[in-house]
Design a protein around this nucleic acid. Structure first.
Lengths: 229, 229, 229, 229
DNA sequence: TATGAATGAGCCTTCATTCAT
DNA sequence: AATGAATGAAGGCTCATTCAT
């Protein structure tokens, strides 16, 4: 190997510095997003001071402004984070579910619920705090919401075309599914007493498919439709 | 008329004054609740100042403190107002629906939706702002929520006992119905483009009953289960 | 006199209230302007906190925002105040000075200096802090400055036309006179040791007229041109 | 060349390094002073952040603290820089002007104006920002100001003794000359539309000498007293 | 009752300064 | 020598609440 000039872009020491720095930045950023989601979900975004956020995340107030433009940007980033998780995870889950339209729909719904469970605090913010954002951010959120819920609508549509699902208002049904997925986060304090996320998914899937699957096809999906005792 | 001493407690003129005063008080109180619901739904409770509320309601800032204890009490009153409407209207609607358990359930759900439509701004606050209340108020709200949703749970339970409804998790089903009723307020900006409250109720009722009614009983409720074109 | 209905617009009690209120408002406003001029001149506008201004003026921080839009508006008001005094007092002094163009010029200059002496703190701000204002305010200030210095330029012009003054660059000479008038405020800490405003005016007038008056007319203005011992 | 041990104190290569280093240091220092003057004159010293200064000068924030003690020291250095230029350039210009007291005075005034023109941004800071300095720095500035203006006072005094100049208050006349020299920087945005520094100097010199030169001596200085068309 | 002037604690944000690398 | 991430004190401004009228 030829010796590299110090300061060269290929200098492994510099690369290591770079890497270490950006790793720390990523860690801090995640720390901040998580602290923000937790506190804002608990008290409401307006009731949480930047001071409190800084303390919860273990950084100084000023540093938040190095990573995010301000309080609103921070909230926006928290919410965007969840929607990004939907955009990544849901299509993957659908792919992994095989070819049957109903199985794919069930997998999509399950994936939504699991993402919400993993980002429970942030998921609540999606519903509760979007009105406090600037109109530009709100518009971006609506666009993201539309695109992340697109898979659900597509699956419902395909299911009906294939005769597996009863004909219903696709937008309405898709919205109900999303709402119910969010329900796990919204009423977690209540449901957690009697069930975990898996049971929630199973029961809600059964209820939803009862409403959606064509009566003649029910036998085929009896495992999904069966309500656990 | 017998001459009365001015200031006498029995003075009918004063009674009239008294009545006029309390009428004005009631009007102002309603005005304040409505202005509060409208502004807080639009901007979030923390973003609305008492000054703005006073102006919107056409009273002075100081007067708000005569009618309500403060900002939080005002928000609490707005929310309580909706829950009171549920407590009054839903049982009445159930009574008026006759004896059939499924018809009664449909009537109850319809009543929830109509109350939400009438208090659309306030209904959103129920979801979005309860976290900003004091813990005592929040506890009162939880209790109220449980008692106002009790009819739904009771009807679901009776329906299952009578064999009209499939056996499902009553709490879950009741919660879903409430969530979907609130959905009309939460996504009103979207749904209003394509339907009114009656269509929303009809379609959601059909979807819900598809999920809940025993397959063998469906023919009896085909008018409720039919989805409008 | 006919008895007036309580609440009538002519009710003297209400008028008195009105008057008392606006009198207090005017007093507060003046208090605030004076405190602002004093502190800002001493420390520079940016170094003075709203807290400090409130304390100096004997009001609360919040009240400042009822009278002025904010810190910048307050500074702008202070500066505008001086320029208004120029606009009012200088023309009056010119009128009172009779018909002779040189006498009128001397009276104008004297008036500028006296106004500056009365608003010494604020006058310094005119020079030192205009760069910290918004561009709109700065433009308004330039316009005001042009119009308040207009009399000087007009008198110089008339004096030259009449042959009393040597032909010089009017803009330059006018600017010099203004600069020197401000000089009393800018270097007050130094000059106050050796002279008062009257002596400053007399000496500067003599110097200026030496530069401006036509040699042949000097005898006529020897009282203005004479330097006191 | 004899081989030298790297790191030796006598290593000529290190001397070269040393020289290069100090040259770079001088360049950076000058760059910083210039950037500071420019930005602070434009926005006011308090409105300019160290971060902005670092960026404008092309160095890191931390490095500023190696060259200067802090923000205030930097401002002080900028101002001192101008006063140093006065102290160096003005006496030289006087020397070069020959023996005539009036010619020497005109040369001194011209030199003041030229230095101000060369340090226009910094010159404004002298007037506008000295109040933001610590009292020690402010005192140093006053002393420097007195000593840099000493030549003017001395020339005025000598001119009067020699009979070339009318007897006037020396302090006042000297101050006026300085004020008018600064005027070029203070109102540069206005004067630059109609004249350059040479024309400004010529016209102001003529005006000043009209005020100062003994009537009997005027013919001798008619070239200085003549106002250009 | 009713008003709205007045208060002042608390919030978001900035930025001079430090220090580990 | 040089960097720039990190700190945290301080500032402008808002607004819930009070109280004199």
């Amino acid at each position: 190997m030829a010796p590299t000039t110090p300061g060269s872009a290929l200098d492994p020491a510099l690369d290591a510095d770079e890497a270490a720095r950006s790793a720390r930045a990523a860690r801090r950023s995640a720390q901040l997003l998580s602290a923000t989601a937790r506190l804002m979900e608990r008290d409401g975004s307006q009731a949480v001071s930047m001071q409190a956020l800084a303390e919860e995340a273990g950084v100084s107030v000023g540093l938040i402004y190095r990573y995010f433009g301000g309080k609103e940007d921070l909230l926006f980033a928290v919410i965007t984070n969840v929607l990004d998780a939907f955009a990544t995870r849901v299509p993957a889950a659908i792919e992994a579910a095989g070819d049957d339209p109903v199985e794919r729909l069930a997998a999509a719904f399950r994936s939504y619920c699991l993402v919400i469970d993993e980002h429970r605090h942030a998921a609540v913010l999606t519903y509760r705090e979007s009105k406090t954002l600037s109109s530009e951010h709100r518009q971006q959120l609506k666009d993201l919401e539309v695109s992340t819920s697109e898979p659900l609508r597509r699956l419902l549509h395909e299911g009906m075309e294939s005769g597996a699902l009863t004909a219903v208002d696709v937008d309405l049904a898709a919205y109900n599914l999303l709402l119910i997925a969010h329900g796990w986060a919204l009423k977690h304090w209540y449901f957690e007493q009697s069930m975990d996320i898996e049971e929630y998914v199973t029961k809600q899937t059964a209820l939803a498919l009862h409403a959606l699957v064509e009566p003649r096809r029910r036998r085929r999906y009896r495992n999904l439709l069966a309500v656990p005792a």
